[in-house]
Simulated assay, not measured.
Amino acid sequence: MTPEQLKADLEGCYVTIPTPFADTEDFPVNEEALRSYVRFLTGSGLTRDYATFLAGGAAGDFSTMTFDERMRVAEIVLDEVNGQVPVAVGAQTTSTLELKRLAKRASELGASFIQVSCPYYFTHTEADFEEFILAAAEAAPDIGIIVYNTFWTSQGVSFDMVERLAKIPSVVGLKWATPRTDAMEFEDVTSHFSDRFTVIDNNLFFAYSATPAMGARAFEVHNCNFWPEWGIKLIDEVKAGNYAEISRMLVKEAMPFYKLWVDIEQNYTSGDGYLDKLCMELVGLPSSRCRPPTRDIRETYRDATLAMLREIGAPRLPA
């Protein structure tokens, strides 16, 4: 597939699929529950016209899984979508050698993309990160690379670094988040590079980033995991240029989810995917906790989560 085709395939909702685990001592991956998740998403309309699925990203507990588990999760998601949806595989790692293995295996499995962030723990330089990306591109030249700016865990990606990434043909996506400063880093990069990359808005600026002046064409949306129709409506409104309705959706239907997420992270546990999983359980899907050290939120936050889902009008809730 050409870079232009990959960029087009990446447009829409970027849906990070949580990885369910069995509630037993070692928390093995619950493969049948994962298949149920994917069937729920595709059966509710999240196909390639509206979405890309991320297998084994942060909400998919990549940091608690072995290489083999990560690849098995990717294999299951790819098998279930059966070509209906483009699939990205989470390839965050602290090791260039492992990144090359992840890229090669994702390509062999038939994934369209890998998602890569600057290695964490050590404060690597941008030159380190450039070599890291180049290693992935050389290891699997046919797979699209999505660069994710996880500035909160590692070296942030500067405007100059984005310019250098633009010279690597297989880097087709920029999952873009920045701290909020007067320099307007989010807007600067998005407006300058939306023709070169498919920019995935990870800052929840949908009503703004989707405007022609900014040009973002993909959006990280956790609501899709329990309310796929919400993401479908979002993309339809983006295509229609109905920015007032997109703003309403964000404030009335997305913001309560993210506010509850922040409350849990500040007061109970940290990680990713735990609130998605609880919401999915409440709409009738099989679910689980995240692997430790993220603690199980289900009993502590069940009532608050159910109240939030009712507030935003999520479908499929118990009477």
Score class of each variant (00 low, 15 high):
3 P>F: 10
5 Q>V: 07
8 A>V: 11
10 L>S: 07
10 L>N: 06
14 Y>H: 14
14 Y>F: 15
19 T>Q: 04
22 A>H: 12
23 D>E: 15
37 Y>A: 04
56 G>P: 11
61 D>V: 03
69 E>M: 08
79 D>M: 02
80 E>G: 03
88 A>D: 11
89 V>Y: 13
89 V>P: 08
89 V>G: 08
97 L>G: 04
98 E>M: 13
101 R>L: 07
102 L>Q: 13
114 I>R: 13
115 Q>T: 12
116 V>A: 09
117 S>M: 15
123 T>Y: 14
124 H>M: 12
133 I>Q: 08
139 A>P: 08
145 I>K: 02
145 I>C: 01
147 V>A: 00
148 Y>C: 06
151 F>T: 00
154 S>C: 15
158 S>T: 15
158 S>M: 03
159 F>N: 07
161 M>H: 12
163 E>L: 03
164 R>L: 02
164 R>D: 01
165 L>E: 09
166 A>C: 00
171 V>A: 02
174 L>A: 07
178 T>Y: 05
182 D>K: 12
185 E>N: 09
191 S>L: 08
195 D>N: 15
201 D>S: 07
207 A>P: 02
224 C>Q: 06
227 W>H: 05
228 P>S: 02
239 K>L: 10
245 E>T: 15
249 M>I: 00
255 M>R: 14
258 Y>A: 02
258 Y>Q: 07
262 V>G: 05
267 N>C: 06
270 S>A: 11
272 D>T: 06
277 K>I: 01
277 K>A: 02
282 L>S: 05
286 P>W: 11
288 S>L: 08
297 I>S: 08
298 R>M: 06
306 L>Y: 13
308 M>G: 10
310 R>P: 02
314 A>H: 05
